[in-house]
């Protein structure tokens, strides 16, 4: 099944491939960047009114953007490409899809909720593995020059490779869809995690380490009391980036592996020429990605001593 799906992509999915490897190619761009939040200053007198206006503005502007997009979509539907479903038809279909998201009519016909949960499960497994392996490896690379010298060239070669290129290796090794997809997500997440952790360890001010030396902290105490808290902001940034990219990669990976998952759902609906389902899935994938990002931001807020 999976091999067939993979072949199918090879033959027909020509236009989709550059797009896919494009997003995956962004994996290495993982430098930690502090996030500066814009502060809005408000005078005391007009505070509540200003806040109301601010909220109206926050809802109003995006609403206009959405309306414009829907208008363009309608125009494409009516005048350019008749195959693209109308916004209204899509909306009706979405209500239909979401009215029973967890139906289960055998392994080849499950609700969109199941598809989503399978994808999320794979992403979180691969991500979790990458965090467990990547943080210690990142620490070693940041702390030991010997270790870094030994590993840096290999990492530099493998890091720019689209994680999807590893899928055949995964299928070969595991001979099953689930572990192969998890393997691809692991590869996706491992580089940003390792690189950010290593960068964080290297960025520790020398003064903190001098404090540890004067206090004669043991290796373990230094790691727990100084190295770990100092690098945590970098580690969490790496995790946040990994998770975002992983959520993009899983869709592509599942298109290739087939079986179940939101990526395969999109591909399957395309084979059924059910474009409405694809649009619904795109919006759903976007929303879930947004939630994942928001969740990681929360984690970051909790763990970053700077906030």
């Amino acid at each position: 099944m999976s091999q067939n799906a993979a072949k199918f992509v090879k033959d027909t999915g020509v236009q989709k491939r550059p797009g896919l490897s494009d997003t995956a190619g962004r994996t290495p761009a993982s430098a930690a960047k502090p996030i500066v939040s814009a502060n809005v200053q408000v005078s005391d007198s007009g505070k509540s009114r200003a806040r109301a206006r601010e909220w109206a503005w926050r809802l109003f502007l995006p609403a206009i953007t959405f309306l414009i997009v829907i208008a363009i979509w309608s125009f494409i539907h009516s005048d350019i490409a008749k195959d693209v479903p109308s916004p209204l038809a899509t909306w009706k279909h979405a209500i239909d899809v979401f009215s029973h998201p967890f139906y289960n009519a055998g392994p080849n016909d499950m609700g969109i909720g199941w598809q989503l949960l399978y994808s999320l499960g794979r992403v979180l497994s691969g991500f979790g593995l990458a965090v467990v392996v990547g943080i210690p490896v990142g620490f070693l690379m940041g702390m030991s020059e010997t270790f870094e010298r030994a590993w840096q060239p290999l990492v530099q070669i493998l890091r720019p490779v689209s994680p999807l290129a590893w899928l055949p290796i995964g299928l070969l090794l595991f001979k099953a869809v689930d572990p192969s997809a998890i393997f691809v997500i692991f590869i996706t997440c491992i580089w940003p995690t390792v690189m950010n952790t290593a960068a964080g360890v290297k960025a520790i001010p020398k003064d903190y380490l001098n404090v540890s030396r004067v206090l004669q902290l043991s290796k373990w105490e230094t790691t727990r009391r100084i190295l770990l808290p100092a690098t945590l902001p970098y580690i969490v940034t790496g995790m946040r980036l990994s998770l975002g990219i992983a959520w993009m990669v899983i869709v592509a990976a599942e298109m290739l592996t087939g079986g179940i998952g939101i990526g395969f759902y999109v591909w399957d609906e395309w084979n059924n020429l059910n474009v409405k389902s694809i649009i619904v899935a795109i919006v759903l994938i976007g929303l879930v990605g947004m939630l994942l990002e928001a969740g990681m931001m929360l984690v970051q807020k909790r763990l970053d001593y700077r906030t």
């Binding site: 003064d207 903190y208 001098n210 404090v211 004067v214 009391r225 100092a230 001593y305």
Partner: peptide, 11 residues
């Protein structure tokens, strides 16, 4: 040692 830039641990 009292370091030049205090070196307190910020966390």
């Amino acid at each position: 040692v009292v370091f030049q830039n205090h070196s307190l641990l910020p966390w």
